[in-house]
Write a protein that binds this DNA or RNA. Structure first.
Lengths: 337, 337
DNA sequence: GTGAAAGCGCTAACAG
DNA sequence: CTGTTAGCGCTTTCAC
């Protein structure tokens, strides 16, 4: 009997000889009942294999017990880690997760978000979404939490609660490290579509005031893009001794192609990225990067969101995480020349 | 006015001076109306900024327009690609996606699945889930599609529709390639928790009847596991000239550690994996692997599922995909010794 | 402690 | 083409 109409609360009530209200309260653990009633209900539930219909429950309560998570590109392990963290916490609290992948195409972000909004109790989204999308998120008036880099350049102070991490600081630390390793001629592989891009560049500049920094702009933030940019980055100007990439994906492609071209990393060129995507540790040479606490971002964002959902709290919180510089062989000692 | 009760269908109806039914039909594009009514409705919708409440709709129709996707480990890009493919198709058809990540811990899979089942119109799940979970999926009676390797050893023929790919064939092709490259002493890094593991081993054995094959069993299918297994795999027996891993994640860790230990890949040892995870192309040396059509699996599974949902079709389909051997430098020419 | 009644917002017959 | 009438399964006052 696989295809049989599932038992409803009413069915259970009838079977147990009580009212639907009572069963409802029992199921939701709202009160204790006379032992007799309790056992009758329990028996009926087992016998009928009853399970609460979440849709009906949602209809009555206005809560779905589902949260939405909007990421920019699910193929980037950085976002995967965020999902992982968020999903973990959601599950612990009995919440489901609806994932929307923007695939870096954000033209209809508003639509997707407002569609999503009606199905969920709250939304977690990247603060890198286009401004219109963020505005929409605010307009919607649902609990929402942003994650990602701080963005002090934003015209108005961010009004949505968020879990943030200092992009400037991350870049500054990396820059300092490169400078102390004696690097003087930098190429920065930029991803100008990201509003976090500028901050990273500023951090680098401030950390390396004496270095030359050439900026190359990429259209995408993929391994392929890094690969394609390699030759120009390496040979496009007189001197280069370090290349910093907008993120690890780009760095992975670049590192690979640099090695293919016979460049010695790090002896001739240092290479680094951002995010500390898990695979970077396993590259040859292992990639220097800055840990942006991806998984923790997801966890914290979800905790914050659930807190807001449950307490109905209004005032926007802002949680700061600390980026961590991860020095690996790809920025090791430079060969004396 | 951000926090205001959203307009209901009834509100629109009243504002437009028609009945709720009419508005409903209009919204769902079921019929055409007199131009006058149409413009009145449209105006009311705009004025009130009305949007359909999906929960109420679900309650009335019994359909949620959401599908569930259960993966074993979202941190494995193989699954990420599947999600990507599935999500793409779902979005095109106006369906939402609820993702459940089992994190390779499948002890409470049944529970998670039956919880998920009530919130969605159908479920896509890995055929690698434990048998109890698959039974549960069938018992639930919701549309469901499995993806993953074929598994001819299964006691009963698989009763659920599925998108499958020949694991045996994939392994056989890889084995043949290794054999033709002159490899004679194989180590297979197994992941016995996966029911696909055996088939891969069989494929290798059949393709390399003259080779010795030592099997090393791993507890997890991660890069770390591959890294830790490296020394034993390389030096644990007299002769080794090739190591095949259960999947690319393991291979990535192994490859890295092998290089760190000073082993020449592929001159001394060939290394290969399965899945064709995107990053494998960018390793040094690039990793030979077998493309298991991850993204396509996700796409096809979703197409199949949506088809079943829409037509209510019963008889279980089985779609076969063809694995593709991807030869890269990690299994290149062996040095004459 | 338990139950009766009134919806949540929408769709689905069936009439007109 | 448009409206009327019933629910979908559950929660929630508010009485008893």
């Amino acid at each position: 009997m696989p295809t049989q109409r599932p038992a409803t609360l009413q069915d259970v009530a009838t079977a147990a000889g009580v009212s639907a209200t009572t069963v409802s309260k029992f199921v939701n653990g709202q009160k204790r009942f006379s032992l007799e009633v309790e056992t009758r209900i329990r028996a009926a539930i087992d016998a009928l294999d009853y399970r609460q219909n979440p849709v009906a429950r949602s209809m009555a309560t206005g809560k779905t017990r589902v949260v939405g998570l909007a990421v920019l590109d699910i193929r980037n392990p950085h976002f995967t880690n965020i999902i992982q963290g968020a999903s973990q916490v959601a599950e612990e609290h009995g919440y489901g997760l609806m994932v929307v992948d923007f695939k870096e195409k954000t033209f209809n972000a508003q639509n997707l978000l407002s569609t999503l909004a009606l199905r969920v109790d709250g939304i977690i989204a990247s603060s890198r979404l286009p401004q219109e999308a963020l505005d929409e998120l605010q307009r919607i008036g649902k609990p929402a939490v942003l994650f990602g880099q701080t963005d002090p350049d934003q015209p108005p102070a961010p009004i949505l609660p968020s879990v943030r991490i200092q992009g400037y600081q991350a870049a500054f630390m990396l820059g300092k490290h490169l400078q102390e390793s004696g690097r003087k001629h930098l190429v920065y592989l930029a991803y100008p579509q990201s509003r976090w891009n500028q901050e990273r560049l500023h951090g680098l500049r401030d950390a390396m005031p004496d270095a030359t920094i050439r900026v190359m702009e990429l259209e995408t933030q993929t391994m392929e893009a890094g690969e394609r940019a390699a030759a120009t980055a390496l040979y496009g100007s007189e001197k280069v001794d370090a290349i910093v990439c907008y993120n690890d994906m780009i760095a992975i492609g670049l590192l690979h192609e640099a090695c293919s071209l016979g460049v010695q990393v790090p002896e001739q060129i240092a290479i680094a990225g951002f995010d500390n995507v898990p695979v970077t540790r396993y590259l040859t040479p292992p990639l220097t990067t800055v840990d942006m606490c991806s998984e923790q971002q997801g966890e914290k964002a979800m905790e914050l969101l659930l807190h807001i959902i449950k307490t109905g709290q209004i005032e926007p919180t802002e949680l700061q995480l600390e980026p961590r510089l991860i020095v690996r062989a790809s920025t090791g000692v430079q060969r004396k020349s």
